[in-house]
Design a protein around this nucleic acid. Structure first.
Length: 583
RNA sequence: CGGGAUGUGGCUCAACUUGGUAGAGCACCUGUUUUGGGUACAGGGGGUUGCAGGUUCAAAUCCUGUCAUCCCGACCA
C-alpha cells in the first residue's frame, strides 16, 4: 500500500521554527520528519522513521556482510560494570544516572563497552570461539552540556556500536580493517561525503584510532589534511619538533625592564625598544599558560605550559592531552593561592633559579611545547612585575617536566609525516573505528584459554556510527531553498506521486500508478489530499523524495510529468511507459 | 561554566516602554469559491501569556526567584 498523504500523520510547516538555526534542522522540522520532545531529544514521525530505518538497514546489511552479529542490550544499565572500569566517575556530568526504588544506582548507557565485554565473558571461554564481532543499533544517552542543531548533537541518539574480540594483536588488526572496510561501503552507499582522519586515542587507552568525518561548515570537529594525503583530527596532530641546537655562542640571559607588557603584543613592542636593532616577533617569546586540571575525582591541580608566543592553546587539544582531567584556565583564586606566579610575567626561571617544575620552588608541573627544544632562545617572564628575561635558553637555563602538544594547529603547518603543508577544514564525526586493546578485557576479566591451555586476555576493537546524526548529515548535504533532496538510498519512498487535479480520473490514475510502481517493488508516497496543486507541489519539494510524478492535466494527452528533484529536470512521459522507465 | 537574546493557541509573531477583560497571519473546523505553484470570502474552535512567589483594587505588562530555548564565548597569561 502506498503512503497516502490524506491519512499520513504529517503536518508540514510553512515557516521556519524559531529555535532551529541549522538548515537541516529547520527542514526536518518543517517537512514533518521529527519533533522536539525535550532539549536534544527528538520524536520520530513516520517520514523520519522511514529515513532512519533506511539508514539503519544499510548499516545492518554491511555489518552482517562483515561477519558481525547483531544483539540488543538494554539502555538502562546497572552501575557496577561501569564502576569497575571507573567510567561511573570518569564520564562525569555527561552520564544520566538514576536510582531504582531500592536506591540502587543505574545509568542510561552512553556507550556499551562494558556490557559487550561481559557478555562475551559470560558465554565464551576458548580461543576457538574467537574472533567474534558483535554489534547493536541502539539508543545512547549523554547529558551534553550543549545539545546542538537538532539531531546533530542530541542527548538521546541512535548509534550502531560494534565490538570485536580477538586473541592476538594481528587478529585485532584484521577485525579493525574489516570494520573499516564496512564503513567505507556504508558511507558510499549512503552517498555521504567523508574523510578518514587519524584521531586521538589517548584517554581511552588504545592504539590505532580513526574517525570518519563528513566535511561541513557546521561541523564541530576541526581536521587537517595535506596534499600528500595525511589527514587527522586537530586533536591528534603531532607537532614536528625541530632538531635541538648547540648552545655555542648564545649570549647569557639578561633581565630587562618591560613595564606594562601584560600581553604578547605589548611585550614584542617594548622588547624591540629595549634592545636596539632587534626585530623580535611574537614567535621569539615564550608564553607560559597556567591551566587548572580537575581530575574525575574532583582533585584540582595547576600545570604551566610554555609555548611560543605566536601560538594559542587549543582547548580541544588540551582536553585530549590532559584527559580524563577537565581543563580550564587558572582562575583568580588559583593565582591568589600561588603568589609566586606573577600574572603577565610568568616564566620558568626567577633570579637564575628554576621557579616552575615539580623539582622547583613552586612544585608546579611545567610542560613545554614540542617546538621549545634544547638550544632555542626565548624572551619570557622573569616572575617579577614589569620584568622579562631575554635570551633564556632551553636546556642551558631552564628545563621542564615534559612535553605538552596543545598549541593550536595552523593552516600551513607541516604535516608530521612530511607530506606537505596542512589545510584546515571542519567536519561532522559520523563514524569512529578504534583499536581498544585489552583495557576493558583486563578491567572486567575477559580471558580465554589458548591452545596451550593458558589464560589469555582478549583484545578488543570498538566501532561506532552515529545513525541519527547521519540523518542530519544527509539532510544538511542534500537540500535546496525549497526543501530536502534525499539520496535514493535513504529517501522515505522511491516515488512520490502527486494527484494534481480534482477529477476523479486523476485520483484513479494516480492510485493505479502507485499500485503499478509497488508491483515493481518500489515504495510510493501518494499525495491524494483534496488540496490545490500549489500546496501539493510545495510539500513534494519540501519532503524531498527524489523522483516526483505529477498526475494531472497532462493526462488529456496520456502523459504524466516526471520531476527529478535533484537535477531540477522536468519532462513529460507517456502514462504507459512511466512505470517501466522509473521502476 | 560565563555573556547576550528570548519564552504569549500547533507554527511565526504583535500587545509589555506608559498595568485595565489577550490579538494577527499560517494551520485546524463549517459553508461557498478556486483547481498546474502555498485561491478568495464568510463564520468558527483552540491560549490559567514557561513556572513559582511578590507588589497592586487590577499583572502578559512591574519586582524577585526559578526553569527552559537560541546564539556567542570558554584561552591570549
Amino acid at each position: 500500500m502506498p503512503i497516502r498523504l490524506s491519512s499520513l500523520f504529517l503536518r508540514t510547516l510553512r515557516e521556519d521554527p524559531a529555535d532551529a538555526e541549522v538548515e537541516s534542522h529547520k527542514l526536518l522540522l518543517r517537512a514533518g520528519y521529527i519533533r522536539r520532545a525535550a532539549p536534544g531529544i527528538y520524536t520520530w514521525l513516520p517520514l523520519g522513521l522511514a529515513v532512519k530505518a533506511k539508514v539503519e538497514n544499510i548499516v545492518r546489511e554491511e555489518m552482517n556482510r562483515a561477519g558481525a552479529q547483531e544483539v540488543f542490550f538494554p539502555a538502562l544499565l546497572p552501575r557496577e560494570p561501569y564502576e569497575v572500569t571507573n567510567r561511573w566517575t570518569e564520564y562525569g556530568d555527561n552520564l544520566f544516572r538514576l536510582q531504582d526504588r531500592k536506591k540502587a544506582d543505574y545509568l542510561l548507557a552512553p556507550t556499551h563497552e562494558e556490557m559487550f565485554t561481559l557478555l562475551v565473558k559470560d558465554l565464551y571461554s576458548s580461543y576457538k570461539d574467537l574472533p567474534v564481532c558483535l554489534y547493536q543499533i541502539q539508543n545512547k544517552y549523554r547529558d551534553e552540556a550543549r545539545p546542538r542543531a537538532g539531531l546533530l548533537r542530541g542527548r538521546e541518539f541512535v548509534m550502531k556500536d560494534a565490538y570485536s574480540f580477538d586473541l592476538t594483536d594481528e587478529g585485532l588488526r584484521n577485525s579493525y580493517q574489516s570494520q573499516r572496510d564496512a564503513y567505507e561501503r556504508i558511507f558510499t552507499r549512503l552517498g555521504v561525503d567523508y574523510v578518514i582522519v587519524k584521531a586521538d586515542a589517548g584517554a581511552m587507552g588504545g592504539s590505532a584510532s580513526e574517525e570518519f568525518l563528513s566535511p561541513s561548515p557546521i561541523g564541530e570537529d576541526t581536521f587537517v589534511r595535506s596534499p600528500g594525503g595525511y589527514a587527522a583530527n586537530v586533536e591528534a596532530v603531532k607537532t614536528v619538533a625541530p632538531e635541538p641546537k648547540s648552545f655555542d655562542g648564545l649570549p647569557a640571559a639578561i633581565v630587562h625592564d618591560t613595564p606594562n607588557t601584560p600581553t604578547i603584543a605589548t611585550l614584542v613592542d617594548v622588547a624591540n625598544q629595549v634592545v636596539s636593532g632587534a626585530n623580535y616577533t611574537a614567535a621569539d617569546t615564550l608564553k607560559n599558560v597556567v591551566l587548572a586540571l580537575t581530575s574525575p575525582e574532583g582533585k584540582r591541580s595547576l600545570v604551566v605550559v610554555g609555548l611560543p608566543g605566536d601560538r594559542e592553546v587549543d582547548t580541544k587539544r588540551a582536553e585530549a592531552a590532559f584527559g580524563p582531567n577537565e581543563v580550564e584556565p587558572a582562575t583568580e583564586a588559583d593565582f591568589e593561592r600561588h603568589p609566586e606566579l606573577v600574572k603577565g610575567y610568568i616564566g620558568p626561571v626567577k633570579n637564575g633559579n628554576a621557579l616552575l617544575g615539580t623539582e622547583s620552588e613552586s612544585k608546579i608541573r611545567y610542560l613545554l611545547d614540542p617546538r621549545v627544544v634544547d638550544g632555542t632562545s626565548w624572551i619570557t617572564g622573569a616572575n617579577i612585575e614589569g620584568k622579562h628575561v631575554f635570551g633564556l635558553v632551553k636546556g642551558r637555563d631552564f628545563g621542564a617536566d615534559g612535553i605538552a602538544d596543545i598549541a593550536e594547529v595552523r593552516e600551513g603547518d607541516q604535516a608530521p609525516d612530511g607530506s606537505g603543508p596542512l589545510e584546515l577544514a571542519r567536519g561532522i564525526e559520523i563514524g569512529h573505528v578504534f583499536q581498544l586493546g585489552r583495557k576493558y578485557a583486563e578491567a572486567l576479566g575477559l580471558q580465554v584459554l589458548d591452545e596451550n591451555g593458558k589464560l589469555q586476555t582478549v583484545t578488543m576493537g570498538s566501532y561506532g556510527i552515529g545513525v541519527t546524526r547521519l540523518v542530519a548529515v544527509l539532510a544538511e548535504a542534500n537540500r535546496d531553498e525549497k526543501g530536502l533532496i534525499w539520496p535514493e538510498s535513504v529517501a522515505p519512498a522511491d516515488i512520490y506521486i502527486v494527484a494534481a487535479g480534482k477529477d476523479d480520473s486523476v485520483f484513479e490514475t494516480a492510485e493505479r500508478l502507485a499500485a503499478e510502481f509497488e508491483a515493481k517493488g518500489k515504495t510510493v508516497i501518494l499525495d491524494d489530499r483534496k488540496a490545490t496543486p500549489g500546496v501539493k507541489f510545495s510539500d513534494a519539494e519540501l519532503i524531498g523524495v527524489p523522483n516526483v510524478v505529477i498526475c494531472g492535466k497532462g493526462l488529456e494527452n496520456g502523459e504524466v510529468d516526471h520531476w527529478n528533484r535533484r537535477s531540477g529536470e522536468r519532462r513529460s512521459i507517456s502514462l504507459n511507459s512511466v512505470v517501466a522507465e522509473l521502476a
